[in-house]
Amino acid sequence: MFPLVDTLGFAELTDFVIAFVLGVGFGFFLEQAGFGNADKLAMQFYFRDMAVFKVMFAAIVTTMTGLIVFSSLGLLDLDLIYINPTYLWSGVVGGLIMGFGFIIGGYCPGTALVGVMTARIDAVFSVLGGMLGMFVFAELVPLKPIMTFFNLETEGFSGRLTLWEWLGVKPGVVGFFVMLIAVAGFVAAEWAERKFNPKLQEV
């Protein structure tokens, strides 16, 4: 039955309108979480405001649980949904560079878009910077060493690969451990905020 796009075969315009509506929901909750504010986002990395972790892992657990439940009921074909392809080393280096960018600039691309719409001037600069960085990447990636690194595949750990396939277990097993990690993380996050946020200590 799900995903509907494969069973119903939407017209392209319908698919785009659905994308737009889903985007509205995404932007709404990002802004509601307070993520249009770089100062709040950056505090994650000083353990003073753990909202980035809380929102992200609450979302991941919600979606993941839904996907696993729908699939185990036979309502969703997991083979038909898009699984981000694995490229180990470009994923590692790209991730580290994104992390550096996050703590220097205070935004990630999605939160910067929301910041722009709520008139945060720094968010405008973040989006412009982001496009500059993408321009530089696109101009450099045809160079042989960069292209080779970008497309480098690791034996046994590449392509369409999920954690449960890699570990050779059922999706629910990995899902259960992700839930445990999330709950432990939530407890640790609440503790960290009480310990490291000077504002909470005054109370």
Partner: peptide, 21 residues
């Protein structure tokens, strides 16, 4: 710094085939 951080994020996101979202 917002621009510099954004640029690094943009570059890294293309290398890693996607960003935080």
């Amino acid at each position: 710094y917002a621009m510099l951080g954004g640029a690094l994020f943009g570059f890294g996101a293309r290398l890693a085939r996607g960003c935080t979202s």
